[in-house]
Every structure is written in structure tokens, then in C-alpha cells.
């Protein structure tokens, strides 16, 4: 059985309110905020990027797991906002956690689900005993074109999971569903992504999340009553609740992971950050069903059973501690931090 040996999250300290973004573009802040079910989103500091977020999450995961970083045989970094187009972030993370050079590492991309694809890769490598531990990270400083609907949700954050043979939560199984559905994309060297508006909903997010979730439940012979928490990808506040309702999950099984109203959509971090938030509070023998979603499009679903070890190894750096430690900025500072003002750089 593969298991989560430890995990770590990181959310930057800065927040911008949805109303502040709406003010700049002459939109109705109440309407936007209510429609997306997002109050505010996280913003990376001027000196933060997906690499620094990933390193902080990875270091938290190493600390939580107690795993010797020299025993980590693979690191996979999933992101759609890597600092370099060519030059892996995974090798920077490896160096920053003092892993051994005798390891494999790669950056992977599948819109918002590359991090969970990394978990599956680590599951295969640990189960086959090719490696002792593997680390999968999902982190983003996502982009939104000024004034576009995405700008209200595109946030920053990440989570790292260390996968091994024994840990705080066993991964009972995984199931993926993948099709060629171009609902959201960013071409090479383009600064901002494009999307199909409503097309990102029914044929994209909903179809893939439900297909992967149902596929996994059928494979493992699970009923809704067997599952204590449902953690879907969180592009906004309404999609997770709607997909949960379609699948038959009670709202209270979704709410513990639904942090998007306070931090926005952390893209590759999204479902993994949600899972971390649930693991912060979950009890032994509770079952968590996480289903990621990546545009383009695909979903990875995981059934995770919390073990007794979680009581001995509670993660002290909880998601809520990062959510609570915040500083509001206005749109002008946000524009500077995000380099939306021409000529702003670090050298």
C-alpha cells in the first residue's frame, strides 16, 4: 500500500479583495464575489514565484514527515507558471531540501492537475520499490489577463506530498479520466491564458471530475456513505459544491476542504491544498476522496484512508495558519507585485 508520509502547504501572505479588483474594472464587486464565491485571493510577494512557493511547501512536508531528504528518490513539480521554460524547478527544490543527487526529478505540466499526476508517478515508483520515498508538488503563481474573469480567481499557493509505504494516510487507489478538451490554454511565450468561458464548465470540469470520481468509486466499490470528505479541484467556490451535489455528496463533506473563498484558485495547488486542509483536521479511519482537474483536460481521483499515525504526527504548519496570516494590498501594489506594470523587474 502506498501512503502519504507527510505533507506541507504554503500560501503567500498578501491578499487582494475581489471588490478591489472589481473597482478598478468598473465591475459589480458584490455580484462577482457572490458568483464566484470568492472573497479574496492570495498574491505572491514581489520576490516570490512558483519555485519559492514549492520550496516552502516541500520544506514543510519534509519537516512534517520526519523523512530524511536523502531517502527521497524522486521529485515531481507540477505547475503551469514555472519560473523557467527550460530548466527544471524540481532540481532547485531538490537542492533546497538537501535531497541526494542520486535521484530522478522532472517538471510536469497538465494545467491544474500536474501535481496529482506527480502523486501517481510517486505511487508507482514507491509501490514497485524503485524508490523509498517520492515527492510530488503542485504550485502556481497563476496568471489572469487584466480585467478578465480569471483575474478575480487566479491566485498563488502550493502543496507538497511525500509518498512512501507507510504514513498518515493510505492511498487505496487512483483513477484518471483524460480527453482532448481545449477549455483553457496558454500558448508558448504568451503571457496570459485564454479560456472558453462557459465551455470550461459542463464538458470540461464537470464531465472530467464526475467521470474520474465515479470511475474510482466503482473500481473500489465505494458508496457515498463510505466517504467522509470530498475534495474536488477548486477553480471557484461554486463548482466544487455543484459537482459534489451532482455526485450526491452532502455539503458538509465538501466544506472542510473549500478554502477557495479565502485564497482563490491556486491552480496546480488547488486540490492538493484542499487535501492538506482536510488532513489537518481528519481523524483515523476517515476516508477522503480527492479529485483534481486540469484543463485540456483530465482528472485524477484518489481514495485516501487516514491512519492512526495522524494523531502522533499532526502537521503544525496548518493551512488555516497560512490563511489567517495575511496582509491586504490594493490593486496598485498587486499590479507591481505581479509585474503588470511595464518595466518593473528585479534587475
Amino acid at each position: 500500500m502506498t501512503s502519504i508520509a507527510g505533507y506541507g502547504v504554503y500560501i503567500p501572505r498578501y491578499r487582494i479583495k475581489i471588490h478591489e479588483i472589481a473597482r478598478v474594472w468598473g465591475a459589480d464587486g458584490d455580484r462577482v464575489s457572490k458568483g464566484l464565491m470568492i472573497n479574496e485571493k492570495s498574491v505572491p510577494g514581489f520576490d516570490e514565484d512558483s519555485t519559492t512557493i514549492a520550496v516552502e511547501a516541500a520544506r514543510n512536508a519534509v519537516e512534517h514527515s520526519g523523512v530524511n531528504p536523502k531517502d527521497i528518490g524522486a521529485i515531481y513539480f507540477g505547475s503551469e507558471s514555472p519560473a523557467y521554460s527550460v530548466k527544471p524547478t524540481a532540481s532547485i527544490i531538490a537542492e533546497a531540501i538537501e535531497a541526494s543527487p542520486n535521484m530522478t526529478a522532472a517538471d510536469i505540466e497538465f494545467a491544474c492537475k500536474a501535481g496529482t499526476a506527480g502523486i501517481q508517478m510517486c505511487m508507482g515508483l514507491t509501490k514497485s520499490e524503485m524508490i523509498k520515498y517520492g515527492m510530488a508538488i503542485g504550485a502556481d503563481t497563476s496568471q489572469g489577463r487584466p480585467g478578465d474573469a480569471l483575474e478575480y480567481s487566479a491566485a498563488a499557493g502550493g502543496a507538497a506530498f511525500i509518498i512512501g509505504q507507510r504514513g498518515i494516510a493510505d492511498i487505496e487507489g487512483t483513477f484518471s479520466y483524460t480527453t482532448d478538451t481545449t477549455d483553457f490554454w496558454r500558448r508558448e511565450a504568451e503571457e496570459f491564458p485564454s479560456h472558453g468561458a462557459r465551455f470550461t464548465g459542463q464538458p470540461a470540469y464537470f464531465k472530467h471530475v464526475t467521470s474520474a470520481t465515479i470511475g474510482l468509486m466503482e473500481r473500489l466499490d465505494l458508496e457515498i456513505r463510505d466517504i467522509d470528505y470530498f475534495v474536488p479541484h477548486q477553480p471557484n467556490g461554486s463548482f466544487p459544491l455543484k459537482v459534489g451535489k451532482t455526485l450526491g455528496f452532502e455539503t458538509e463533506k465538501i466544506m472542510p476542504s473549500l478554502k477557495v473563498p479565502y485564497i482563490g484558485n491556486t491552480y496546480s495547488g488547488s486540490s492538493m491544498v484542499g487535501l492538506a486542509g482536510v488532513l489537518d483536521v481528519a481523524k483515523p479511519n476517515e476516508r477522503i476522496l480527492m479529485t483534481s482537474y486540469g484543463s485540456g483536460a483530465g482528472s485524477d481521483s484518489f481514495s485516501i484512508l487516514v491512519t492512526d499515525l495522524i494523531e502522533e504526527k499532526r502537521n503544525k504548519k496548518t493551512l488555516d495558519s497560512y490563511i489567517k496570516d495575511k496582509k491586504y494590498i490594493d490593486y496598485a501594489i498587486y499590479a507591481k507585485f505581479k509585474r503588470k506594470i511595464k518595466g518593473v523587474s528585479m534587475g
Binding site: G45, T52, A96, M346
Partner: peptide, 14 residues
């Protein structure tokens, strides 16, 4: 904390 210290322009090393 782990942060960016400087960038060598938009096409250089971070």
C-alpha cells in the same frame, strides 16, 4: 524563507 534575490534580466538566471 526561500526567496528570489535577483534576476539577471528577463532572460537571465534567477
Amino acid at each position: 524563507v526561500f526567496r528570489k534575490v535577483r534576476e539577471d534580466g528577463s532572460d537571465g538566471v534567477i
